[in-house]
């Protein structure tokens, strides 16, 4: 059983810290212009953080206790391929979902 004092400590401090992280630049930098080198790095935030977040989940899925799973690999590839060549986020999500469902139906 989770101790209630500890629980509220985590909820409140985590909430305050998460907001501080989110507000840091938006709030403190505001409309001051950032230097060119900083802007150049920030342009690549999305295409760096998202792949870094996803790559370990694809290669070592938590649901299979870290065992690489062919169905998940294929689903990830299908979603990426449709997104990259088809330029459609929705199409890419559907492609990944179809592979996962197909795997489940085949009992893989």
């Amino acid at each position: 059983m989770i101790d209630k004092t500890e629980l509220w400590f985590v909820i409140i401090v985590l909430g305050v810290c998460s907001f501080a992280l989110r507000f840091l630049f938006l709030g403190l930098v505001g409309d001051r212009t950032l230097p060119d080198w900083a802007l150049r790095h920030l342009r690549y935030t999305a295409v760096s953080i998202l792949p870094a977040l996803v790559a370990p989940l694809v290669i070592w899925p938590a649901a299979t206790e870290g065992q690489t799973d062919p169905v998940r690999l294929l689903a990830a590839f299908a979603a990426f391929a449709v997104g990259y060549w088809g330029k459609s986020v929705i199409g890419a999500m559907l492609a990944g979902a179809v592979v996962m469902l197909g795997g489940a139906l085949l009992g893989l």
Binding site: V47, P51, V54, A79, F80, K87, V89
Partner: peptide
Amino acid sequence: GLDFALPIAFIAMIGPA
């Protein structure tokens, strides 16, 4: 298979980007 909805959603955003 639900655990994989999140990675798929992120991957779907990466391709077009």
